[in-house]
């Protein structure tokens, strides 16, 4: 009897990875999924923090995809090692701080380790030639295969017919004729195939699978690097970049201002890491101060904090400032007029 071949599918939660896994599964291959947690994933976070979003039940798309396929999903936390990919990408960034090509290489390499440890035969991804300008080009496909060390054990079922034969095809584990030749930015072929398989409520393709493709997010991360004087980050830093308004009124500090109750509550958890500001006697945001601040900086921060509170039209309000040791002081300030909050302060 022929040996049951096993493939590990990189599952992002989008349509392409769903289809790629399905195509291979339908050829009698045992498929299990891997999903990577980089810390920048779009799934979950802000929705969990923001109160108003919690009413909409938002599913985790990679788990949903696995459930549709009836496959196991292994979620790997690569957030620590991934830092080096974001900080020093060998092939550079895309339009924003997204190191897509390095990221793909890294993920395929991690999947390769997993494949070896768990006795799987090959890897599948939902890549389509030309779908993304930087990482999914015909020229980049061999780079990913080579640099990740996976070589011909990486099969891309949606565009395999446009690429050289891989080991699973060569060995007859999968039938190349039943693979696809999708290319370009059009989503039509994928949607048609989804309809053929009877998938109808898959995640709509967005700009990318992570926050690093977001211009706003990337500019906040660049700011963080620039003002810390080094390109490093912790998981807490990148989590905080996803929430609140970020304002840098002076080079030595920035403020993170909660936008609603859920964010305020979440930010409470950072009291031991940052100086916090809150207006007394009026509803208002939780504000974190990131950086070093002297008395005049604290006064400015308190005025801004007051501006975003319900006390904004009062002549003066009291703001409680608490340092990381829990020592409180009070400052009476005039809320800053709207026109004094400069546009360039917003990150």
């Amino acid at each position: 009897m022929n040996k049951q071949r096993k493939a590990v599918a990189l599952i992002s939660g989008g349509l392409d990875s769903l289809l790629a896994a399905k195509v291979i599964q339908d050829q009698g291959i045992h498929v299990e999924g891997i999903n990577f947690f980089t810390g920048f994933c779009v799934e979950g976070h802000t929705h969990a923090i923001r109160k108003k979003d919690q009413k909409k039940v938002k599913r985790n798309n990679s788990l949903w995809v696995a459930e549709q396929l009836g496959i196991k999903l292994h979620i790997l936390d690569i957030s620590e090692e991934y830092k080096d990919v974001v900080i020093n990408p060998r092939y550079g960034y895309g339009a924003n701080l997204n190191p897509c090509l390095d990221c793909k290489i890294f993920m395929v390499n991690k999947a390769r380790d997993w494949m070896k440890e768990n006795g799987f035969d090959f890897i599948i991804t939902g890549e389509v030639i030309g779908q993304r300008p930087k990482s999914q080009r015909k020229e980049t496909m061999p780079i990913i295969s080579r640099d990740s060390g996976i070589d011909d054990r990486l099969l891309r079922p949606l565009c395999a017919k446009l690429l050289p034969q891989t080991l699973p095809e060569h060995e007859g584990w999968v039938n190349r004729e039943k693979l696809y030749e999708f290319s370009g930015r059009s989503r039509k072929p994928q949607m048609d195939l989804a309809a053929q398989f009877g998938f109808d409520e898959y995640a709509q393709p967005a700009g990318g699978c992570c926050f690093l493709t977001d211009e706003h997010y990337s500019s906040k991360l660049s700011d963080l690097w620039q003002f810390r004087g080094e390109r490093t980050y912790e998981l807490d830093d990148i989590m905080l970049l996803k929430i609140g308004r970020h304002l840098r009124p002076r080079p030595n500090f920035k403020l993170i201002i909660g936008r609603e109750e859920g964010e305020n509550k979440f930010m409470q958890g950072y009291r031991k890491m940052f100086t916090t500001l809150r207006v007394d006697g009026h509803a208002g945001p939780m504000v974190l101060l990131d950086g070093k601040a002297d008395d005049s900086d604290l006064e400015l921060a308190a005025q801004i904090t007051a501006r975003y509170s319900q006390g904004r039209s009062f002549d003066t309000v009291n703001v409680t400032i608490t340092d990381t040791q829990g020592h409180c002081r009070e400052m009476t300030v005039t809320p800053m007029p709207e026109q004094s909050i400069l546009k360039e302060w917003y990150l």
Partner: peptide
């Protein structure tokens, strides 16, 4: 912890 960390 925020999802997917509790799952992980």
């Amino acid at each position: 912890l925020l999802c997917p960390l509790p799952v992980i």
